[in-house]
Amino acid sequence: MLSIRNLHAEVEGKKILKGINLEVKAGEVHAIMGPNGSGKSSLSSVLAGRESYDVTEGEVLFDGKDLLDMAPEVRAREGLFLAFQYPVEIPGVSNINFLRTALNEIREYRGMPQMEAKEFLKLTKEKQKLVEFEAKLVNRSLNEGFSGGEKKRNEILQLAMLEPKLSILDETDSGLDIDALRIVSNGVNELRNANNAFVLITHYQRLLEYIVPDFVHVLYDGRIVKSGTKELALELEERGYDWIKEEFKTEETAG
């Protein structure tokens, strides 16, 4: 589904990603872990198409199509979804109107008719339940005055509504209390199926107790330096990131 090959990117001339390789297949859940500043969030930004990043080398194929050639909105319509680490507050744009606009633009791109008002409301209600999202929040301005947990649940609500093929969750667990983490994780687990895939970007192993990944990758200094299964996450939790830094430094010096 997603093939990242030798991806290099920089922001304001500073090299951030230095040759990322990653294959994600349908039905899989990948976790990308790493210390702060290793490039985790930059990877999600580059994949979603944030303008401030320049890709200098490499390619990304999404279902065989050149992802980097697409505008951010086209990537979304093709089925890529980024759950933001810090969702933006937009006063004056109602959550429900935003959801309807997004859903219908995606449907139009896929040659589907606009969703009837009744059907849309039914779908919204159903998905709200999934993330235990209070009905009154749906009619409020987008993320305005939401708590951290409400914002993250709103991201998963959008994910549930838009039914992407590939979802990237950028530190969705950071700052969440245990209840919110459980709700968000349940939502994701409900949405997992054989046809979609998830990339979980996280700093903490705790999330992976709730959403069990098929693969765990460690990102350090703009490169994936280690890959494994969920046991790798446990090891990271136990030993921290310092040994990765040490090991990687050693290799660099030796090489």
Binding site: G49, A71, P72, E73, R75, V88, I90, N97, E105
Partner: peptide
């Protein structure tokens, strides 16, 4: 960027934000 990342076209996003303003 947030609006576009949800599939909303540039012009629609701009209209939403101006209406919100």
């Amino acid at each position: 960027f947030y609006l576009k990342s949800r599939g909303i076209a540039e012009q629609t996003a701009r209209r939403l934000l101006v209406s919100a303003f």
